[in-house]
Design a protein around this nucleic acid. Structure first.
Lengths: 172, 172
DNA sequence: CTGCCTGCAAAGGATTTGCACTCAT
DNA sequence: ATGAGTGCAAATCCTTTGCAGGCAG
């Protein structure tokens, strides 16, 4: 029923991989599927956590492969990662700016560390409960402008999460 | 000379520790001195790196103690840490809102639940060269306002560094 | 004196790497 | 066929922890 829908974005990612001459393997498909599912549930999975889910989905896939896959797919631009303060890094499908659904962080990340365009959602994490949520679009526009004008620094607004206290954890 | 000046802030920190009933030990003094010196040089040291310097300054201090000290002193409020995206955490002396950086206003602070912050200003890190620099005061004011109004989320503007490309690394 | 802080060493846990093999192309 | 990807396992790396003793207060 919805396995097809879920597969849409995975398919797109696989397609892009093919275009790039990257190989489609069970491990990569599993990783993509896991992340896609998490994205839709607005979950934010770390490499380790992704590994766990992949293990249940495709037990033959080794943990090390998951790490290598995440690196490779991020390099290929089909995945994005967001650094959370202190609590590691989480991965997302790099949606081609199409269906910027709530909870998803699109970002066109080219190869490696060389992409100026970080036009995705900014994430914020609560230092008390650890919850990660999406910030309103454009929250960092002003900051980006200041940084650019002032220091010539090009901010990547979706690469690192901001920290603070969420509404539930703010002492009133 | 300036060895005295260096000691000023360390002294202040030690004073606060005393007030809190915390003990003043060689290890703690060494850690504070190392961080104070780094701060003045605008360096951003990780726990590990601090450990190295402490080792040369006070060889008898064990690495494990450095970690425990950093945790303890941060808890006591005399140290602050900033999470850098992906590259760990760096420590600073928690300046009592006096002579932090040019133009930094004392952040209004509510609770102490998890972060007695302090370094007061936002950091930005270049994803290409790794350099960490201070952002202009107030860069995140607008973002903080939006987050508060929109989500009731209280942003901690100095707890995590923003990522991007510094002027030297931005592709022209 | 007391017990907070430390030294030491060993455990821990996440990520990486060398190597040989396999499978996608 | 052929080399990109993978499995496996060992190696790292940073950080934490248990315990006993030492020093600050």
């Amino acid at each position: 029923m919805n396995a097809n829908h879920d597969g849409d974005r995975v398919e797109a990612a696989l397609g892009r991989l093919r275009e790039l001459g990257e190989r489609i393997t069970p491990a990569r498909q599993a990783v993509l599927r896991v992340i896609d599912t998490a994205d839709r549930a607005e979950e934010h999975l770390s490499a380790e956590h992704i590994g766990e889910r992949v293990a249940t989905l495709e037990p033959s896939v080794h943990r090390a492969t998951v790490y290598r896959t995440l690196t490779a797919l991020t390099g290929a631009g089909v995945l994005t990662h967001v650094h959370l303060g202190g609590t590691g890094t989480v991965y997302h499908l790099a949606t081609p700016a199409s269906e910027a659904a709530p909870g998803v962080s699109p970002a066109a990340y080219g190869t490696d560390v060389s992409e100026p365009h970080g036009h995705g959602h900014t994430h914020v994490q609560c230092v008390v409960c650890g919850r990660v949520q999406d910030a309103p679009p454009g929250v960092l526009d002003e900051a980006a402008r200041i940084m650019r004008d002032d220091l010539g620094f090009e901010l990547d607004t979706s690469h690192a999460a901001l920290l603070g206290r969420c509404a539930d954890c703010v002492p009133t």
